[in-house]
Nucleic acid binder design. Structure first.
Lengths: 202, 202
DNA sequence: CCATAAAGTGAATCTCCATTCATTTATATA
DNA sequence: TATATAAATGAATGGAGATTCACTTTATGG
């Protein structure tokens, strides 16, 4: 036997895989899905174009994997925050504030994940992602209704209204440039929170 | 002089132009911007591919023109409804119901116009379109605040929340299939209306 | 019917990328 | 060091689709 995969090689491959995903994520964060070109991803990761295909069978799979990795992380973070504390109002506020803080770090990326159509593999992941967000919101709403804090409404529909509302107000085409001032950002976030709380409260 | 453009020719050209725009709109309504191919547009309009270029200098201009025509019409309709009546609650409800009725006729088209990224010409039109919607909402909100019906809030931000919320709930990726049942559709619309009214009311 | 000008045509061209693959380089064991 | 195997390379290939243009058809007025 003259060759076997060693730890070192496995680690280096894993590292390269991560680099490729990061490079692709960075490109999406700059210009959405259409900015992802296999040659650009390769260049950004410091490898040759062909190498990308040793890690991902196609561009569609690469983009879907980026989508999966990024959204799973976001859902985990949001889930943690939304499960913290007993008061559903506080939890709702926390969820929105968390989304805001994170989405505004990379608004174009957030927009792509939430709204930008992509190939079928991406669309399938999007459904998973969106359902996760909707689930988190619905849980808060259900608890709030059970505790008598929130008015009884169809939680699935209301969850969509809330997610759509804050996403639009934060990263939609008319959203103010949040790179600008801290105070403007805070006004936006608190207005959104108040809007949502008022809409669901008893 | 052996040739001059006659009424007949002008009319036929205008008709062809309209056909091309309709064909392109139809394609967007089926699969979004990426479904627009110059050869498909030509085929759908019953002309040769080259003919499209006698009416529009490029695909980008054609799509932008479709965007302009469709959204101007939608904004006009919405503006009419939103200006009808004195009671801001009724006007808000009317605006949302109108959007719902129209968007659900062609959900994929509505999604493209509102959310789907496109080339720079389209993005420029989108800003115009979205500002028009936001303006209509803001007017209702301002009147409501002035009349003491609505709570005082930053109307621009709230307008975005409302537009994002109802768009998401009606045509977002998790929106129920409204081709299904009339009653489900009505439940969705009334839930959204209640949500928005509650959020803005005093 | 003829001459002129525009409208219409669609195959050929051009561009952009995803994907492939013959070749080179690196790693592991004997 | 020599051999075996895998990883990496990047130029070449292939396909999709936007755009062009030499040619054909249609309309107009004399």
């Amino acid at each position: 036997m003259a060759y076997r995969e060693t730890e070192k090689v496995i680690a280096r491959k894993e590292d390269k895989r991560v680099r490729l995903i990061s490079a692709a994520r960075e490109l999406i964060a700059e210009g959405g899905f259409s900015s992802v070109q296999m040659s650009s991803v390769a260049a950004a990761a410091g490898v040759a174009t062909g190498t990308v295909y040793r890690y991902f069978p196609s561009k569609a799979e690469l983009v879907a994997e980026v989508f999966r990795v990024v959204t799973q992380w976001e859902v985990d973070v949001m889930g943690q925050v939304a499960a913290t504390g007993d008061n559903p109002r506080v939890r709702l506020e926390g969820a929105i504030a968390t989304f805001a803080k994170r989405a505004l770090m990379a608004p174009r990326l957030a927009y792509a994940l939430i709204f930008e159509p992509g190939d079928p593999l991406v669309e399938a992941e999007r459904i998973v992602f969106r359902r996760s967000y909707a689930r988190i919101m619905s849980e808060i709403l259900k608890d709030g209704i059970a505790q008598g804090e929130f008015i009884s409404q169809p939680v699935d529909i209301v969850a969509n209204c809330i997610v759509g509302g804050f996403a639009e107000a934060l990263i939609g085409p008319l959203a103010p440039d949040h790179a600008a001032t801290q105070s403007e950002r805070e006004e936006t976030i608190s207005t959104i929170v108040n809007f949502c709380l008022k809409a669901v409260s008893k």
